[in-house]
Each structure stands twice: as C-alpha cells, then as structure tokens.
C-alpha cells in the first residue's frame, strides 16, 4: 500500500488536515500510525478505506488507486473501527454471515466460516445473542471476526485496544501477531506506545497532518540519544556518589540509595564499552553488581519529544 503526498482539506479555505503524508506499507507488514488526536490519522485511514476523497496526492492499495476504483479496493480491505458499528438488528452469527454475503460467499461457506471465526474469537455459545447484549470486548472481537470473513489483504485497525480490558487487549495482540504470520498486511493506529512498540514492524509518527518520523520502533527509540545508557543495582560498598563520576564514555551519572545498603545508579552515554567500565569500577571499589541493564528512551519519550506537550 502506498500513500503518496496525501492532502485533505475539509473546508475550502480551511487548514489542511492532512498536509502531504507519504508512507508505504509492504505486503505482510504490520505498520503503525501514531499521533496525537487531530493529527490526521483518522482522515488518512478514511482515504485508504474509500470514505474520504483526497484533496491532493493519491493512495494505492495493491496497486489500485483508491479514488479511481474504490469498489476494487473495498474488495481487498477490511476495517475494524474504534467504535462498534455492528448491525444491532442481527445476531452475532448473522453479522458475520451477511458480511460475507456482501462479498459473494455462498450460504454454506459463510455459515461454516462464521462458526470457525466465532470459535477462534471465543464467542462460541454466544452466536445467537443480539449484539446489543455484547460487552465492549466481545463486540471488538466480533468486529475483528467480521473483518476477516472475506479474507482481506489489508486489515485496517483504528485504535483497536483503546477501550479494552487487559485480557481482551492481550488476546487482540496475540491475534494481530497470528494474522501477521498468516501474511495479512496490517495498518494499525494507536495512542498506546507499548502496543506500537510491541507489535509494529515500522511506525510513522504523524502530527499536524505530516509524518514527523518513520522507522522501526527500535530506531525511533534511539532518536533520543540522551536517554540511552546503563542502569546498575549495586550493593555492599560505601559512598557511591563519586564512584562513577569520571567514567569513560559516561555523560551524566545519577545515584540513589535503594535501601538495605543497595544503590541504584544510572549512567547516561552511548559508549559500547560503558558496561565493562562500570562493572570494573564497581568491583574495584568493593561493590557487588546485583543487576545491570541497558536503558533506552521509550517510544513515549520520543513521541512527546516530536509532538510536544500541548493538549489537543
């Protein structure tokens, strides 16, 4: 999927809500779109899913221009929205079955697949319930099941876990990983940094209608070099305050007592040999190293660094 210099302006002389967004998602990739409210994520998703006409630029799904042939694009995609849009007149099984009917599946196939999907998403025994009686987590699972009924090539998940309990969220994460293994291309929007970090192959951070950073989660975290370094938990020595002050490759040192004659020390710096230097220094001064780990900036730090702290 290719988004190329996408622009959208809803009012003729108003601002560009999407102001030249470009990114490409490879087949089978799990791509995250991250950004504060009003950054242009939902509008971008709207264009990809044929619901918003772009003011400029273009979007290709499987090589097909979304504006030129929306019907062909609709055959290839599926969307799980933020808010439930299930058919409340119908039961859960009927929601799945009729969705498949729209995509030309015959009655026997779609009944079979609906049963299969209900079992996979833990909704067995609730298939004849009215979806009005479904909890938020169940509705979410049913919408994902519905999205998969017609075997889409591109699955768009718009903030899928924002209203879920931890169990449902873990289940959803597992399912997303499975789908990725099955080769489904996934576009995910989220506010949840851990979710993006955990799941996505690559992430585009969007703000004010533009892509402000695009990379793998790991490389994005490294955008904040001042937050990289080491954390040690040491015990048994005395006066840690001056211990690491002149350490080679360290820019800044923080030491706090951690109780029971233990001390937690953070040494900031990117030097590869920082670990050896720190361990050596501690040992020579009579400290025992209990715990040692590298620290990186979190995605959240990077996000706030790039998009600022103002409320939207």
């Amino acid at each position: 999927m290719v988004v190329d210099e996408l622009r959208k302006r809803f009012v003729p002389n108003g601002p560009d809500v999407v102001d030249g967004i470009s990114f490409a998602v490879g087949r089978g990739e799990l791509f995250g779109l991250l950004g504060p409210n009003g950054a242009g994520k939902t509008t971008t998703i709207g264009v990809i899913t044929t619901r918003v006409h772009p003011s400029g630029g273009r979007v290709l799904v499987d090589g097909i221009d979304v504006s030129r042939d929306p019907v062909a694009v609709k055959r290839r995609i599926a969307v799980v929205p933020q808010q439930s849009n299930l058919d409340r007149t119908l039961t859960a099984a009927e929601n799945l079955s009729f969705h498949a009917a729209y995509f030309g599946s015959n009655r026997r196939d779609r009944r079979h697949r609906a049963r299969e999907m209900l079992a996979r998403f833990g909704l067995e025994g609730r298939e004849d319930d009215a979806v009005n009686n479904y909890s938020g987590g169940m509705a979410q699972r049913l919408m994902l099941a519905r999205a998969l009924m017609h075997r889409p090539q591109l699955l768009v998940l718009d903030e899928p876990t924002s209203a879920l309990d931890p169990q449902s969220r873990l289940f959803l994460w597992d399912t997303i990983r499975e789908l990725r293994r099955d080769g489904v291309t996934i576009l995910l929007t989220t506010h949840d940094m851990d979710e993006a970090d955990l799941l996505c192959d690559r992430i585009a951070i969007v703000d004010h209608g533009r892509v402000v950073a695009l990379d793998t989660p790991r490389r994005l975290r490294q955008l904040l070099p001042s937050d990289a370094g080491l954390e040690l938990l040491i015990e048994g020595g005395s006066d840690p305050s001056q211990l690491f002050s002149g350490i080679e490759g360290g820019r800044r040192v923080e030491a706090h007592s951690a109780g029971e004659d233990r001390c937690r020390v953070r040494i900031y710096g990117e030097d590869e040999r920082l670990t050896e230097h720190a361990a050596g220094l501690a040992r020579r001064a009579g400290w025992r190293v209990v715990e040692l780990r590298r620290i990186e900036g979190t995605l959240e730090d990077v996000f706030v660094h790039l998009t600022g702290r103002e409320l939207r």
Binding site: P70, V71, K74, P81, Y102, F103
Partner: peptide, 15 residues
C-alpha cells in the same frame, strides 16, 4: 448514532 451503515458502505459496490 449506531454507525451501522459503515459495514454496508464498505461492501464491494458503488456507494
């Protein structure tokens, strides 16, 4: 309110 039309609008036929 219910957004129920969305699934129909994403069915593979012109709006």
């Amino acid at each position: 309110f219910t957004k129920e039309l969305e699934d129909r609008l994403l069915a593979p036929l012109p709006v």
